[in-house]
Design a protein around this nucleic acid. Structure first.
Lengths: 231, 231
DNA sequence: GTACTGCTGATTGCATTCAATCACAGCGAG
DNA sequence: CTCGCTGTGATTGAATGCAATCAGCAGTAC
């Protein structure tokens, strides 16, 4: 009972995987789990449990937790444990203000190099989102849309920082989306369409402005629903 | 010769320090060492060595390296080793562009809450810098000046991100400072004086503009000296 | 002389093991 | 009944030891 329940599967996957990537792999798995909603903010993470799930010992798990701590997704307290990070309304607002200034910059870097193909894909994603009824699907499409619009930018830290901002606010964006659907606010979709137009015209200036407004609008909408951050 | 040369001191400090903070402590020590110029970009970091220096085993050292990797100060490659991260001219430019957009925001958050005392200190630091002849001292004062100007802002991720940007570019700022002294460029000092004035007037708009120009000017100056990034 | 192969030492990656710390239940005193 | 104390179980922190991997070099074949 104290041993792993599926030792054969564990051995199978362990031997198939390369030596020297455990920490990164575990971190990636946990990250996906958190972003996907499998863990709630404030939920405790037990090292032993994670180790068993990934067929590894606690040492690489601890390294993985350090990685996610640095990304802000997990909070570690010495001798106490680790929890999925949660945000206050204030912190979330701050991150949206950062996004408001950073993402237009990344978009500018991307605009000129975007292929027509990718812009077509963006158009499709925007249309799909407008017709989407499933919340999880909408969340995924929205993320895809924006990240794809940045995909032609070859940056190091800027893209990375923005990814962190997206990840840390992911849970609250999901909570907000539930509200948004109730309120039937279509401005999000208009923003997306305007963005695609600006990109097609290679008008970086306009694209920056539209994107800044888009993020700002979301920030203000979030501010109107402080109940999301009740914790 | 393979053992630690000062086992007594090691034991002394180990027992005096709390249990459960090793990784953070080692990370902090290595961070200071890198920022202080003790390590050069591209220099290799050996786990065993670091462990011996800090009187710990390699396990917390590995956690510390993961922390610094996430901060961008260290680069890890599986089964190969870890090195102090180095930047290309392109990456450095990118980080300065990020700073150009983010730091004015942080300064805005800080402006209203800065006490007159702190503004006086800023004035003193600006004056000291102008008279400073030692490069290391100038670097330290400049860092103090800007971080102090942000000190009244109570942010979570914004301040953190900016600190990372400062840290990752620290080595190249040091290299640039050597150039700057040769070129006798005083615009840096004028910027600082203008910044103090704006803060004293509580003119956040003006402070933002001055700071953005200040950072932009440094970025352009760095771009004129690509030889700094020869690697 | 050059390219390839196998070996050796050094270094990293991870599992195991033990020590330190904390949370909490149960008990007793006021 | 409330407050404080103590002991036990659970959980984390870190040291040790072994396996996996890599870099460099000697030796050999061509």
């Amino acid at each position: 009972m104290t041993d792993a329940p599926v030792p054969d599967v564990k051995a199978l996957s362990a031997t198939a995987l390369p030596h020297g990537e455990s920490a990164a792999r575990i971190a990636a798995a946990l990250r996906e789990e958190i972003l996907g909603g499998g863990y709630q903010p404030g939920e405790r993470i037990r090292q032993q449990e994670l180790a068993a799930q990934n067929g590894a010992s606690r040492v690489p798990v601890r390294e993985a937790l350090r990685i996610l701590e640095a990304e802000g997704l997990v909070t570690l307290v010495a001798n106490a444990g680790s929890w999925v990070s949660s945000l206050s309304a204030q912190e979330c607002k701050e991150m949206y203000q950062m996004r408001e200034r950073l993402e237009p910059l990344l978009l500018r870097f991307s605009t000129d190099s975007l292929s027509e193909d990718v812009i077509d894909q963006l158009q499709q994603l925007a249309d799909l989102m407008q017709e989407s009824t499933d919340i999880e699907q909408f969340i995924a499409l929205d993320r895809q849309f924006h990240l794809l619009s940045y995909s032609a930018a070859s940056t190091i830290m800027l893209g990375d920082t923005i990814m962190r901002l997206w990840n840390r606010t992911q849970h609250y964006r999901r909570a907000y989306t539930r509200m948004f659907r109730a309120e039937r606010d279509d401005s999000v979709h208009y923003d997306h369409q305007l963005l695609v137009s600006a990109l097609r015209n290679r008008d970086a200036e306009d694209a920056e402005r539209v994107l800044a407004s888009h993020i700002r609008r979301t920030r203000l909408a979030l501010a109107r629903h402080p109940e999301i951050f009740a914790a």
